[in-house]
Amino acid sequence: MAQVQIVSDGPNYRHQIHSGAHALVADEPASLGGQGAGFAPFDLYLAALSACTAITLRMHAEKKGWELGEFRAELSSRRDAADRLVVHRVLHASAPLTDAQWARLLEVVEKTPVTKVMREGATITSERGV
């Protein structure tokens, strides 16, 4: 499905993440001992969800023949009283959409592949490399 590699390449917590021909930097903010040189881990978590959100809704709109114009999703996270992560999405489209179109997009966004995995959880395994 997906494959990435992360390599420590700099001071403190700076790392290069590679996926095929693409690369980005991960780091912690200075307040946590990093250099603030790239996305923090939870920024990447929200970035994955926002990318899936935007791509899925753009695909759905295209299939329906709907014009979204510029689409934007703003995501934020916080911890609730039980210390569970709560993610909130606010969706924007510059093109005028009807209430029925927005209702459908809000239904679709609840079923994006990354949304489903994040809600279900994942089995994560680890092993020592050679």
Rank of each mutant, 00 (worst) to 15 (best):
D99N: 11
L105Q: 04
A82F: 02
L85K: 06
V87T: 08
V109R: 04
S77T: 09
A82R: 14
R79T: 06
A82H: 12
A73H: 09
L106T: 02
A81R: 10
S76M: 07
D80S: 04
S76G: 14
L105N: 03
A103V: 01
S77A: 14
D83A: 13
V108P: 08
Q101W: 08
R84W: 06
S77Y: 08
V86A: 08
R79L: 15
L97D: 08
S94Y: 10
H88Y: 02
A82G: 04
A103H: 13
A103F: 04
V87K: 03
L91V: 09
S94F: 10
L105I: 09
A100F: 00
E74F: 01
E107Q: 15
A81T: 14
R89T: 00
L85N: 05
D99F: 06
E107S: 07
L85P: 06
R72Q: 14
D80V: 11
L75Q: 01
A95N: 12
A95W: 06
S94I: 08
H92D: 04
L75A: 09
A100P: 00
V108W: 05
R104G: 01
A93T: 13
S76D: 15
L91E: 03
L106C: 09
A95H: 14
L105Y: 06
V90W: 00
V90F: 00
W102S: 07
V86T: 05
A81H: 12
V109S: 10
A93M: 02
R78E: 12
H88G: 02
L85R: 07
R72P: 00
R84H: 13
L105W: 06
S76C: 06
L97Q: 08
R79Y: 11
L106Q: 15
S76L: 05
S77Q: 14
A93D: 04
P96Q: 09
A82L: 10
S94P: 09
V108L: 03
P96C: 08
E107H: 11
V90L: 13
R104C: 07
R104T: 06
L97P: 07
D80A: 07
V90N: 03
R89M: 02
Q101S: 07
S94N: 08
L91N: 05
E74P: 00
D83K: 10
H92G: 05
A100H: 07
P96W: 05
R89N: 04
A103T: 15
R78H: 14
L85A: 14
V87D: 06
L85S: 13
A103W: 05
E74Q: 13
R84E: 15
R72T: 14
S77G: 14
R89Y: 03
E74M: 03
L75Y: 01
A103M: 03
R79E: 11
E74L: 01
L97W: 05
L97V: 08
V90Y: 01
R78A: 15
L105D: 09
D80Q: 05
P96T: 11
S77W: 08
L91T: 03
Q101P: 03
V90D: 03
V109M: 12
L106I: 01
A100S: 07
L106M: 15
L97K: 05
V86R: 09
R78Y: 12
L85Y: 06
A81N: 14
W102H: 12
D99K: 13
S77K: 03
T98Q: 01
P96H: 08
V87W: 00
L105P: 11
D83Y: 05
L85F: 13
R84V: 12
V90A: 15
V109L: 04
R89S: 09
L97G: 06
